[in-house]
Amino acid sequence: MSTFSIVSGRRLLIAAVFAACFVSGPAVAGMLQDTIARYTAEVTSADKGFTGFSAERGRMLFFSRPATGKPDTPSCTSCHSDSPVTVGQTRAGKEIAPMALSRTPDRYTESKKLAKWFRRNCKSVLGRVCTAMEKGDFLTFMATQ
């Protein structure tokens, strides 16, 4: 192997490591983990016995049909499709990127945006705001998908 190819190989590796730092799954998941940590702190402050969020409870929330909010949106799946890994559709016909972190890695990166959608969609589907427990469970489930 010539010196040149070793050098360019090293450069490539450095570039790849740099790129990975900015766009890799773990970095994005890290932001989601920060958000989950915030909800953990919120729940723990009220419930000292809290043992952590549950992806299973999050799954049940996603697939439940509470129908206690607005009539056109009885469940999360009304717009987000029957699977977190497939594309959904708004009532106005616009595509919604899948909810699963693995499919839409940049979905849970902006806390302001996250708060906005929880506020709106919990009102639309449940008719009330979601608890920190529900939000944490939901995100924990989506992080595993």
Partner: peptide, 11 residues
């Protein structure tokens, strides 16, 4: 916007 054609679209 809190009831925007049947959805909460508040900002």
């Amino acid at each position: 916007l809190s009831n925007h054609f049947g959805e909460d679209a508040s900002l």
